[in-house]
Design a protein around this nucleic acid. Structure first.
Length: 430
RNA sequence: GCCGGCGUAGCUCAGCCUGGUAGAGCAGCGGGCUGUUAACCCGUUGGUCGGUGGUUCAAAUCCACCCGCCGGCGCCA
């Protein structure tokens, strides 16, 4: 097991002798002097290999070693202003653990397409590494906060038989002769679980078979969903804003180095609750004042979202959408049954929808009516309806897109940068 | 699904408008170099110009269709 890391060496005194295991990030040959930038999970260290200081075999190996080869280096720590970072390793011996058999394909100047074709190798780059660390921290922060708030994590199936949203596109597959689909949301299963656990959440992939070619869509994305018994729309929004704040704070506290690598300024105060709450009808008014006319009943398009999001510094909730624009299970507002008690959380700066959710219909007859109104077959929703037959209670839930959130926080040019091996309509490999 | 753009060396691109059988930089390969920082210097290999068909004496270049990719829209997280 490896014990000494680049990070440790940077803190060591002049003259310390160490053995390092890492990868050759780059190599510069100057006749009798070879510089190797040695990379490991904690940083990069310049190794100076001088003819005469090392044995001839080590020197030859250093001269010939390929980029991204794995090497074991023994040497002495030296402070030297000529070295990047002011510290380098004076090499005493070098062994090749695993050489590079071909020229390493990832280089400065290659295009996005090429990078994603070689994503398995691209992952070694500092920026991708930083994004993955931010992602891990973000998810950890969410889990910790939810646990502290009394939520229980549950795990729901990926194979399903019916859609959550009637119209949304599902990936269809053969399940021993039956038709099955890949889940696009675990909401219905969570609604079943609240009758024992009361507050639940899941973190698992969702799938959308949409040919969406935009910088904010993946066909497979990690979905953080939660459902709460006895929670109404207002309770839900409080949970969402505090959760998002906890995630942003977590990244800010735990990822300073990564944010520096990515050149991202992250100010957690921009995610501090409370977030503005506007009703759909108010959003229409704001848009109208800006010269953008949307007729009542239509959902906002990307253009409208962008105009709207420029009006806010923080994420903001848009609530009470017309029922025509939303799925059947949303509870209608008793004061105005033409709108739902739902909410979308939109990120500022044109990043768009991060969270979608709302209060669910908990009355059996009302749910059945809405299913029929939408022209859906109640038989497809039998067990979902069944939940309303035995001790049904008001409840609310939401879904948050992990990659969307990372995309927004890190100001990434495309959501695919937020995933290890992203899946888009055109990307199934590697 | 709709709209737009692109496809030329391993990579990044120029050449296309105005038709005359292909170029640069980087990488690779050979050589040199003891303080580089994407090292540098000298030399050098490398291409069915996405595919098919058409126009033409002649097509990377003009036309049609197809394929692939990229972005926007719709849909959503």
């Amino acid at each position: 097991m490896k014990k000494v890391f680049v990070e440790d060496v940077l803190g060591m005194g002049e003259g310390s002798e160490v053995e390092l295991l890492g990868w050759v990030r780059s190599r510069r040959v100057h006749g009798g002097l070879v510089f190797i930038d040695l990379r490991d999970s904690t940083g990069v260290l310049q190794v100076a290999v001088k003819r005469g200081v090392v044995d001839d075999e080590s020197f030859e190996r250093a001269r010939e070693v390929g980029r991204e080869a794995a090497v074991k280096v023994r040497g002495v720590v030296r402070k030297d202003p000529r070295a990047p970072g002011g510290v380098e390793l004076q090499c005493r011996s070098l062994e090749v653990v695993g050489d590079s058999l071909d020229e390493f394909p990832i280089r400065k100047g290659v295009g996005v397409r090429f990078l994603f074709d070689h994503r398995h190798l691209h992952l070694r780059s500092p920026k991708v590494t930083a994004i993955m660390r931010v992602r891990a921290r973000l998810v950890e922060s969410a889990r910790r906060w939810l646990r502290e708030q009394g939520f229980t994590e549950i795990h729901c199936p990926t194979f399903i038989t019916a859609a959550v949203e009637g119209g949304a596109t599902l990936f269809k597959l053969d399940y021993f002769g039956k038709t099955a689909y890949l889940t696009q949301s675990v909401q219905f299963y969570q609604e079943a679980a609240i009758y024992s656990l009361e507050k639940v959440y899941s973190l698992q992939p969702s799938f959308r078979a949409e040919m969406s070619r935009t910088r904010r869509h993946l066909t497979e994305f990690w979905h953080l969903e939660a459902e709460m018994a006895y929670a109404e729309l207002e309770d839900l929004m409080e949970v969402v804003e505090n959760l998002v704040h906890a995630m942003v704070r977590g990244v800010h506290e735990g990822c300073q180095r990564e944010l520096r690598v990515l050149g991202v300024e992250l100010d957690p105060s921009m995610a501090e609750p409370p977030y503005p709450r506007i009703k759909y009808s108010e959003a229409l008014q704001i848009l109208s004042n800006k010269g953008v006319e949307v007729s009542w009943g239509d959902d906002f398009g990307a253009d409208e979202e962008r105009v709207l999001s420029k009006e806010f510094e923080k994420p903001f909730f848009v609530t009470h959408y017309p029922k025509e624009a939303k799925a059947f299970y949303h509870m209608l507002d008793p004061e105005d049954p033409s709108v739902c008690r739902n909410t979308d959380l939109l990120a500022p700066g044109g990043y768009g929808e991060i969270v979608g959710g709302g209060q669910r219909i908990h009355d059996y007859h009302q749910l059945l009516k809405r299913i029929e109104e939408e022209g859906l077959d109640p038989k497809d929703y039998e067990w979902y309806l069944d939940l309303r037959k035995y001790g049904s209670v008001p409840h609310s839930g939401f879904g948050l897109g992990i990659e969307r959130t990372i995309w927004w926080l890190l100001k990434l040019p495309h959501i695919r940068h937020a995933a290890l091996f992203p899946r888009t309509p055109a990307r199934l490999y590697p």
